[in-house]
């Protein structure tokens, strides 16, 4: 049952996915070729790529849901004798699979681009900088899982927000979407506040996966000058805990089931 829905979502979104991959490929080629000119455009394009990935689930889920209503297939979709969480998870999973493919592609592209950048700078860089340049690629490779984790977390949050905003617009009419945006921002604000309560921090800070200090040490060992630059900014070095990730996922799952409930019980065609 679920697989059929998942397949249907893939089929439906394939064109959008292909377009986004094509656009990204153009972006990577552009960066790869034009980076030696050091135009600010390269920087802008790179930033756009990162943002596209953070907003990937948001855009794709919203597009999928809007299309469902715009093309009247919602009449059929809403009448499927299937629980809301199954319908929505199929959409989420299809978009998430595409997100993973897209971001893997982005990482490979970034790696290649970085290698070329390193080769370029090695020839021209000043004496003291060769050290830091030579460690860029290994550092990138070591840190990329954590970047991936952060981007995925952000993308998931935004994806859930997109579903909430859309479904809520079908619960409260008109301007349900506006109310939903306000609610989302408010919830996020409260959530951040709760996360930073010392008690909550203590509850969630278990099983550290990434120790910020170790990373810092590593950087300093490669580039001793860094310690001086970073001096006095110890506060920004934080750890990533398994507990935090679990809490984050739990909250997302809760929001997801709330949205499913809204779809089943409150949403209108």
């Amino acid at each position: 049952m679920w697989w059929s829905l998942y397949k249907k979502e893939w089929q439906e979104s394939l064109f959008r996915f292909a377009v986004s991959l094509a656009l990204l490929t153009a972006a990577y080629v552009f960066i790869y070729i034009f980076m030696e000119r050091e135009t600010p455009l390269v920087f802008a394009v790179s930033l756009a790529v990162v943002f596209l990935h953070i907003f990937y689930l948001f855009i794709m889920l919203l597009a999928s849901l809007i299309k469902e209503w715009k093309e009247n297939t919602s009449h059929l979709w809403m009448n499927l004798p299937v629980k809301g969480y199954v319908l929505l998870s199929a959409k989420l999973a299809a978009a998430f699979t595409q997100f993973l493919i897209s971001i893997s592609y982005a990482i490979v592209a970034a790696d290649l681009i970085l290698q070329r950048a390193v080769r370029m700078f090695e020839d021209s860089a000043a004496e003291g900088l060769t050290g830091i340049i030579s460690m860029l690629v290994p550092l990138f490779r070591e840190l990329i899982p954590w970047v991936l984790l952060a981007v995925t977390n952000g993308a998931l949050q935004l994806g859930i927000a997109a579903m909430f905003i859309f479904i809520f617009s079908k619960v409260v009419r008109p301007f349900g979407w506006l109310a939903a945006i306000v609610l989302t921002v408010l919830t996020n604000y409260i959530y951040t506040w709760i996360k930073n309560i010392p008690l909550i921090e203590r509850i969630t800070e278990w099983t550290p996966l990434l120790k910020g200090e170790e990373i810092q040490e590593k950087i300093y060992s490669l580039y001793p000058g860094g310690a001086e630059i970073m001096d006095g900014s110890e506060g920004i070095v934080t750890n990533v805990y398994l507990g935090q990730i679990a809490a984050e996922l739990l909250v997302l799952a809760g929001a997801f089931f709330l949205i499913s409930w809204l779809l089943d019980r409150k949403a209108e065609l």
């Binding site: 297939t73 919602s74 009449h75 009448n79 004798p81």
Partner: peptide, 14 residues
């Protein structure tokens, strides 16, 4: 919808 089949007047097929 487990008890009801709904036929829309719109073009509702994928």
């Amino acid at each position: 919808s487990k008890d009801i089949a709904y036929l829309s007047d719109a073009d509702s097929l994928y």
